[in-house]
């Protein structure tokens, strides 16, 4: 949509925020309805499709084999990629990932790495020579706001859904799994935006075009904060940050529960 058309909508969003309201009449700390479906891609070793208030992201986990990073010969490698498909909005153009897509991949990557969600030492076949490469790919199909949280839910669900394939003669045996992927933690992002003085969670697309500042905080179950990313040009006070950290822990637990429920579907 033309920038000035967004200006018009943003004006309405800001006016309502001054009075303490959101345009869709949501409570400030309420998420939109979310649905999570796992095991949606036959060829993936783990997969999930998330719909967060209309924002749709599909994530897939694939295991391959390769050489380890030279400075980490005793670890498998995690490679996270994200693409904001031209399907997702009128302004999304086909082509290589832009800064938003790159940021999305790196933000999700950090939450998994820094939380030690995966023990990469488990993925060595022959130290220094052959290890599992764990690919996590996210594809954004529909952007109705809050890609970070939607991608976070999709990645968490895909990882929980994932199984590790068998290796024979230095080759992956497709569709034969030896164990479930073990996750030590399930990092979940909670994203807030600040409009005027108002802080609200799970921004919809109109709120994303109107915010002054944005904060995404990744938490794990025990209440530790494992990653943070500030967006936008505006600023937050220390008090606001403390408030958001507390809420992120609470919201993170709620959403983590949703993810776990989606994955538990009578699998062996």
């Amino acid at each position: 949509m033309n920038e000035f058309v967004w200006e018009f909508t943003s004006d309405k969003v800001r006016k309502l925020a001054l009075r303490g309201f959101r345009i869709d009449r949501r409570a400030l700390l309420d998420y939109r309805p979310a649905s999570i479906e796992t095991g949606v891609v036959y060829n993936a070793d783990g997969s999930a499709l998330v719909n967060l208030g209309g924002t749709k992201v599909v994530a897939g986990v694939k295991f391959e084999l390769g050489a380890p990073y030279p400075d980490r010969p005793d670890e498998g490698a995690l490679l996270v990629d994200a693409e904001i498909l031209p399907h997702s909005s009128p302004s999304a153009e086909p082509g290589p990932p832009d800064e938003e897509a790159i940021e999305l991949a790196r933000v999700i990557d950090r939450s998994i790495r820094e939380s030690n969600a995966l023990d990469m030492k488990e993925f060595v076949i022959r130290e220094g020579e052959l290890v599992y490469l764990l690919f996590l790919d996210m594809r954004v199909l529909d952007d109705n706001g809050n890609l970070i949280d939607a991608a976070s839910l999709a990645s968490a669900a895909a990882l929980l859904d994932a199984k590790v394939p068998r290796v024979e003669d230095d080759q992956i045996v497709r569709h034969e799994y030896e164990r479930k992927l073990k996750l030590n933690e399930i990092p979940i992002y909670t994203t807030f935006v600040k409009i005027g003085k108002l802080i609200m969670v799970d921004p919809r697309i109109e709120e994303e075009h109107a915010f002054d500042a944005r904060m995404s905080i990744a938490t794990v179950d025990d209440g530790s904060i494992v990653a943070m990313q500030k967006g936008g040009a505006g600023s937050f006070s220390k008090g606001e940050l403390s408030f958001m950290a507390d809420e992120a822990i609470k919201k993170g637990r709620e959403m983590r529960k949703l993810v776990k429920e989606a994955v538990g579907h009578g699998k062996d």
Partner: peptide, 14 residues
């Protein structure tokens, strides 16, 4: 386009 995880061997996004 095809998602990297859509096929048996992970496909590069390029």
């Amino acid at each position: 386009t095809m998602s990297p995880f859509s096929v048996p061997e992970r496909k590069s996004p390029k």
